[in-house]
Write a protein that binds this DNA or RNA. Structure first.
Length: 350
DNA sequence: CTGACTTA
DNA sequence: TAAGTCAGG
């Protein structure tokens, strides 16, 4: 999922931050990334997600609702950015993911048969798929909550980066690093409240704090340009060439991009048979991806009735819990958002 | 993942 | 008040 820069990011480039550091800042959240995380994480020990009485999955709504309210209580102005149509060159990867999920479904069923809860949960997570209906419900819920969302023409991460570059957002938020390649000046990872995360395959929880990666700082520390970072990503693998270049790991890739002042020349010189997609096409895409400026960011007063309809009446959420959370959301709106619509940047540019 | 409740 | 457990839908 996304370009794996983890191994080449120097620890000094990552700053642990407090949610208070994001107060009154606009954060463009990769909606698909967030919803998918809720969908995989919010499950029973045997892997069953939360569902309403008609069997429709509701894990994503639960996560979206409560987390968004938490962020609002911290005065953080979140905007969710939804994926549009992926570029043609992503179809290979999309097909591959479908295969992986189909395999996971089989393994899940086998695990259930032999009563292996842990495996069942693991494979259920792997098999999880975000449906159009889930996305529609998520958008309806955000609308009712008075939280803005933007429909990207293509990749959500590209749209979030575009918004951050223009100053409409302070940072992009996602677990993936792609927004950095797309040029977002800042990336926030681990944007959650309770910082507990279970280590894969272990029964151990570790504290995970939100972290901030600044693009300029990262590039300086690596001693490369954004263009070289994109080339680096292509060498180690992106969603558009998942395998990267055989035999080139993060370290070699960094050396290679440093050795070439012009990343285009480097990419042109790659062995053609190693690549399913023209590396220059990928390079151009990261450098200048489709994005729209046709959006308006407004944090409106929550429509309690609508939220109640969606969560309680349609999806069997507990009335008490929803009412309680709505009170918190209304209070957050009054305290942080009402009469504070424009960020400083937008105000200066008015 | 998060809220609500329990425990020390 | 902090840390732990469990259910939520």
């Amino acid at each position: 999922m996304g370009v794996n820069l983890r191994e080449i990011i120097p620890p000094e480039a990552v700053a642990e931050i407090d949610l208070a550091a994001l107060r009154y800042k606009v954060v463009a959240i990769d909606a698909y990334n967030a919803l998918y995380q809720f969908l995989t994480a919010i499950r029973q020990p045997d892997g069953t997600p939360l569902m309403d009485s008609r069997g429709r999955v509701t894990s994503h709504l639960s996560g979206l609702f409560y987390r968004t309210i938490n962020l609002a209580e911290h005065g953080i102005k979140v905007v969710y950015v939804f994926d549009g149509k992926p570029p043609e060159m992503k179809y290979m990867e999309i097909e591959r993911r479908k295969q992986v999920k189909a395999e996971a479904v089989k393994k899940y069923e086998e695990a259930v048969k032999r009563g292996d809860q842990e495996a069942a949960r693991r494979y259920a997570q792997m098999a999880a798929r975000l449906t159009d209906e889930m996305v529609r419900d998520a958008k309806r819920l955000l609308d009712a909550m008075g939280i803005p969302y933007v429909q990207a023409p293509a990749e959500g991460e590209a749209q979030a980066a575009f918004m951050a570059r223009r100053g409409d957002a302070w940072a992009a938020a996602s677990q993936d690093y792609d927004s950095l390649l797309f040029g977002s000046p800042r990336l926030v990872r681990n944007l959650a409240i309770t910082g507990r995360r279970k280590l894969p395959r272990k029964n151990v929880y570790v504290e995970v704090k939100p972290e901030l990666i600044e693009l300029d700082k990262l590039l300086k520390l690596l001693g490369i340009t954004r263009e070289q970072l994109i080339a680096l990503g292509i060498l180690i693998g992106t969603d558009y060439n998942p395998d990267g270049i055989k035999g080139i790991g993060p370290k070699t890739a960094l050396k290679m991009v440093k050795a070439h002042r012009d990343p285009v020349k480097l990419l042109q010189g790659l062995p053609r048979h190693e690549l399913q997609v023209d590396p220059l096409k990928i390079y151009e895409y990261f450098l200048n991806p489709p994005a729209t400026s046709d959006y308006k960011l407004e944090w409106r007063e929550p429509d309690e009735k609508k939220v109640y309809e969606i969560l309680v009446e349609e999806h069997d959420f507990s009335p008490d819990r929803v009412k309680n959370a709505l009170e918190r959301l209304k209070k957050a709106y009054r305290e942080h958002f009402r009469g504070r619509q424009m960020g400083l940047d937008a105000w200066l540019r008015r």
